[in-house]
Simulated assay, not measured.
Amino acid sequence: MLRILGKASSINVRKVLWTCAELDLDFEREEWGSGFQSTQDEAFLALNPNAMVPVIQDGDFVLWESNSIIRYLANRYGGEHLYPTAPQLRARVDQWMDWQATDLNGAWRYAFLSRVRQSPAHQDPEALAAACRNWARNMTILDRQLERTGAYVSGDTFSLADIPIGLSVNRWFQTPIEHPPLPAVQAYYDRLNAREGYRLHGRNGTP
């Protein structure tokens, strides 16, 4: 039985849960992270020295880093429909997953901590305005890509890239900032909501 360590509210844990839903994988999940068992516990640090969730245990195999985990699960459990083996198709999926992990992820961090987490260290008006502009710029890049494909991030079919990006799109709409009109992103959001895994994990259980 696959074991997942991490709280279900974590955006990175939700990547793994959504991937399991797409692959119809059974798993056991343990609550680790803020508010639950501490990731500073020696038993957890022995699995992930970075003290971050998620971590998976698949038999004797241990893996951390959410994008690495979902790639592994797709490779291990018949997920070629999510993560194609053809080199160019796979490279396109990897490209957008890496873009999410670097450019897009970095773009929303300050605004999310300021407006959702209400972090006292992230309340500088100029820094917040700059972060919102950068986030909107990256979302515009996504909107143009979705206009080109007419469906999903890497092409006309749902892929592994849509899992981290779909979670980021949910965060965009759920963060109380000004949202410029991005019709392709809105249509994509609606399209993802037709997937049970997204309703359960991508939108954190919200309709």
Rank of each mutant, 00 (worst) to 15 (best):
P183G: 12
A129F: 00
D58L: 07
R14P: 05
R90N: 13
A91T: 07
E196K: 12
Y189T: 06
Y83P: 02
D156S: 13
I141T: 15
T19H: 01
M139E: 10
R117M: 13
E126L: 14
H201L: 04
W96R: 04
S66F: 03
M139R: 08
S68G: 15
R148A: 15
V53I: 15
F36W: 13
G6S: 01
M97N: 05
A51E: 02
G33V: 07
Y72R: 10
L142Y: 09
R133D: 14
G59Y: 06
Q118T: 05
Q40V: 05
Q37R: 14
E42L: 10
L200H: 11
R3L: 15
V55A: 01
S159P: 06
S34M: 10
L25Q: 00
E30C: 04
G155F: 04
L146Q: 10
A184T: 07
C132R: 05
I141G: 05
N105P: 05
Y83S: 05
Q145R: 15
L45E: 06
S114T: 04
R144K: 13
L5N: 00
L23Y: 03
L25E: 01
P176F: 00
L45Q: 12
F27A: 02
L167I: 14
G79I: 07
P183Y: 11
N105Q: 14
N50G: 05
F158M: 14
G106I: 09
W172A: 10
L200W: 03
P176I: 00
A136P: 05
E126F: 06
A107I: 08
R133I: 09
D98T: 08
Q40Y: 10
A161Q: 03
Y198A: 12
H122T: 06
T140E: 15
S34G: 11
